[in-house]
Design a protein around this nucleic acid. Sequence first.
DNA 1: TCGAGTTGTAAGCAGTCATC
DNA 2: GATGACTGCTTACAACTCGA
Length: 220
Amino acid sequence: MFSKLFEGRHRGHGCDEERGDRHGRHDMRRGGRHHFGDHGDRHERGERVQRLFEHGDLRRVLLALVAKKPSHGYELIKAIEEASSGLYVPSPGVIYPTLTLLEEQDFLEAVATGNGRKSYQITEAGKVELAQHQAAVDVIFARLAGAARPRGGNLAEEISDAMHRLRSVLRANFMRGDLSGEHVARVNAALVKAADSIEAEFTAIDAELKAKAARDTDEI
DNA sequence: TCGAGTTGTAAGCAGTCATC
DNA sequence: GATGACTGCTTACAACTCGA
């Protein structure tokens, strides 16, 4: 089955099987495919994209999740989504290569489940690795939970609902052919205004939190 | 049979880290 | 400081399973 998968994929993408790179990548800074909705433009505007996971965090999270319960890739994506109350859903493109890496490092062991899915379970080496970084893992999960922290009502859920609504509205109207340039400009202005407003809120929140932290330090 | 859901890989970008 | 390797991330795509 997997050989079939590979066959199809290589046909589909016309890529080179002999690439040495662990993740099957070329030097990606050269040349390339056209990218729609590419995140490169964020950087062009000078914005910094904040990563949820720092160096190696994702691997530890996956190790911890698999240690709790042997799972396949999709289950792990769902588990992380759940841990963050839906605010962060890792892409398959980051989960599967990372699982492969952990398998290569003997931290995880792949188990064929019979239905074509590959389930992963933690190895002894994986348990040792996890134990060594248990504190870091706790911090990462606390951060995930913090991102989704319910305070009375579930804030993350509300934001998530609003995001889904926004996405639905845009998708529903995205391909309309009856919009003039002025219409597009109006919608764009509304989006920019909303983004500015949200950014301002977070800036204010950061300032509040900093001030609170400073007060707490003084009290100590 | 068809479509939705699931699993997995490829291509590509940018940030971070290690090495020289 | 420059450079290359590694890492996290996204989108696109193909193949498979399963239920309607």
